[in-house]
Design a protein around this nucleic acid. Sequence first.
DNA 1: TGAGGGTATTGAATCTATTCAATCTCTTGA
DNA 2: TCAAGAGATTGAATAGATTCAATACCCTCA
Lengths: 333, 333
Amino acid sequence: MSGNKVTIKDVAREAGVSISTVSNALNNVDVLLPETKNHILEVAHRLHYVPNLNGRNLKAKATNAIGLFVTSITGDYYSALADSIYQSCRNRGYDLHIFISDNSEAIMAQILGRRIDGAVILDEHVGESEIAILEDSGMPIVFVDREVESDNLASVVFDSYHEGELVGNFLLEKGNKTFMLIRGERNNFDSIERARGFLNVLNNAGVTVDDKYIFDGLFNREVTYKGMLEFLDKKLPLPDAIFAENDASAIGAMEALLDRGFKIPEDVSVIGCDDIEISKLFRPSLSTVRTSYEKQGALAIDQLISMLKEGAKGTKIILRGSVVSRESTIERK
Amino acid sequence: MSGNKVTIKDVAREAGVSISTVSNALNNVDVLLPETKNHILEVAHRLHYVPNLNGRNLKAKATNAIGLFVTSITGDYYSALADSIYQSCRNRGYDLHIFISDNSEAIMAQILGRRIDGAVILDEHVGESEIAILEDSGMPIVFVDREVESDNLASVVFDSYHEGELVGNFLLEKGNKTFMLIRGERNNFDSIERARGFLNVLNNAGVTVDDKYIFDGLFNREVTYKGMLEFLDKKLPLPDAIFAENDASAIGAMEALLDRGFKIPEDVSVIGCDDIEISKLFRPSLSTVRTSYEKQGALAIDQLISMLKEGAKGTKIILRGSVVSRESTIERK
DNA sequence: TGAGGGTATTGAATCTATTCAATCTCTTGA
DNA sequence: TCAAGAGATTGAATAGATTCAATACCCTCA
């Protein structure tokens, strides 16, 4: 009926051998008579025996599993990253356990509680003091949202400043002369860096952006939609091009413009950043900056596994994006 | 420097008490002198002690964790479901471990290996024989992609047949007379049921759909886009309304229609099923059938936890959707 | 003063699987 | 025939935590 938990002891009794022998048979330790081994395997299979992982991992001091810690699982970034990390783990023979977390305690419990052999962390809840503890624990960990580098701590991050530069150069090359910047969150690192890169490029070209043409979209579609409508109500002249610091925000801006009857890109060009799924599907399709989340995930696992298997030291990897030009931007004379 | 693994033994030695006393202090067993307990807690904190979960779970025969097994983590359905399951687990005080899987062995290893106390499974790789083993194991499990019901096995599924009926009735009430059906996959249960519900409603109203107006979109945007272009090239009269069995497919159909210069909904109405994120954002926004993944996730966890805590028996829950009317459908005279 | 009783603490068993040294069995060769 | 050696199997220790019966201690009261 139920509660039928088969242990190695049951297999041993049923097969008429010792527990050690069953263990050897199951772990391919090549010292058994083939007939003994086959018999044990047959019995184990018949009883639906599956090793208790708690016992196994306790003794082995290893789990063959990697943990991925994220604050959310919704959204293109998270799912693309999780997916590429999954693929990489799979190719390398590791199990992947994904944990969603809204505080760092659970993360520390899983990592220091030895339920995994290594971790990838994308979670701003983890603070400096916890990083120090993690470093001290010797557990190999790769951060994908901050720059860290030590014996057992590594990171794979994007160059947000460069993304801002890319957009600035792209828009200038297309002949745009006046600009609007829709910011993300004021104290978000990526937001600050994208803005800095963008504005520096413009400044170097002798272009300044008036404060009236900068507002906070908070990386959010609805917020930007409303912000854009407010801007349009002021009846100021439209800029040649708008840079929204992420695609969700850019879509919100485009919706507001379209709802007010403006044509994109004829009246104004719009470019975002991130290349989320909707960007390609929206009409007009959105120009943007693509960074490879797949590459980020793969590099994170590569690094984690070389720390795990070869005892490699953690390093810091910085990835750069590239512009994807679509319908929402146009060449201006 | 590193590899610094603190065990309960270290805490006991440092605090000058026995291992049992440390265990009692940490687990709030109320038999200790407050000063002893506080001292132990202080030492444990100072040493950054975190219990080894393998040891703890082995002895306790419980993990306080629920496993979610999915074949993928990308896509609106998976992420919405995972998110609602996460929220429910969190509210109930359980950890959630998400596992992506492309075969059933890993699932069986985790579940029968006792690394979790219960599971939610959305994974067609799990076959009948494995379900029998799971049932026999007594482990509480909720399936969200198939109907199962036994002492420790439960399910929460959608009524796809009813979804098809909803669309049929909705389109008939809007005055549509001729129809096109874009199917999903021929041997997919949801696809079969949605088609059956839709066509039955039409048949009961005396309407038939010619085979020329039925094609397979495989639940896929690109495939449907191409299929729709092929259809349009035949220059057959457009139907009043098109039902695509999922939203991705409906978006593909709309893209083809728009690219050929047709107007939606003036020339033809389009309705999908699933209410994915893009549906609301696309222009025109897509009418569709909404089923609550959030509710599905919450019910799955409700059920799982009552099996876990109260030893409740598994039941079968069937959820129904409702039509969301947006810009892509119109009233016809 | 010493038996009885309550409270705080500890020792030892236990959970399951792995590992390695020890044992047992069989064969071979002097 | 028996020692040596090879090969197969087993016993016992171990991993880190929990649990419960047992002990130690202190106080009270006859």
